[in-house]
Amino acid sequence: MRFSEKIQTVQDTPLTATGIEMLQVNVGYRCNLACKHCHVEGGPERQEVMDRVTVDAVLKVMRSGSIKALDITGGAPELNPHFRYLVEEAQNAGCHVVVRTNLAIFFEGGMEDLFAWYDRGRVELVASLPSCRHEQVDRVRGKGIFEKSITALKRLNSLGYGVDNGRKLNLVYNPAGAFLPPEQSSLEAEYRKELLSAYGITFTMLYTFANMPIGRFRQFLLRTGNLDMYMAKLVDAFNPQTLCGLMCRRLLNVGWDGRLYDCDFNQMTGIGVTEGCPTVLSHFDHGRLASRRIAVDDHCFGCTAGQGST
């Protein structure tokens, strides 16, 4: 069953946005890593990077005051040459800024002052850590990445990130294969116990996200003959209670080239905002986009499986 048909079995109307609480900006697909589950298929060779003109278009929207929060993703956002300008100017405009970091970026050349720069700012960090264990993280993300991640988390803790009354440091778990994530609170308890006892690390919250059947993860599913099984698993786990909290209903996604999407997954599958809406950020119109119909496809089952993944 297609996702659009599934929606019709539980509600009379198509999915629509309920507002734009957050602008999610993908500043480019270039990344220092090439993780096996990456829906962006990010990597060091990718050339798609948001330019200054588009960054200024983002800032123009944020300065207008209609959206209060900016969620910056990539690739590795820090590799965009205009990244710090974007963060600082958005903060100057009074916006709350969230950055999705891969933790290993702190140890790349030219990033020596990144800890100190984050420390000076008020940036909320969301960091990938698909396991508390060395072998699994390195298998998914690359050799040596677990050790770098642990070192970065310790340093962030020492700077006041992820500690009581400190800045927010949220972690993200993705399954390391063709299976669904566990219930969020139970895994969060395990992460807290393991990271504290083994490394003395604390964090704010753990998000458990299902892998979307797109990008590099889809290639893995196809290569291993697991695509049909995985899709059936997502469809079987469809939970209508997740629909009201879907992120696409509360945010607008911007591609590196300024095109508009309902979410980062639609961006990677080339599905723009629905007809009748402005398609590029330079034509941003809050009124028309805030109640738009959400464009859906079968990968959307990834966000509605089980407890949901948004």
Binding site: Q136, P175, A176, P181, S186, L187
Partner: peptide
């Protein structure tokens, strides 16, 4: 085995 992986456990 699948249930264990879905509960966040690994081969260890």
């Amino acid at each position: 085995t699948k249930s264990c992986l879905e509960e966040g456990m690994d081969m260890e």
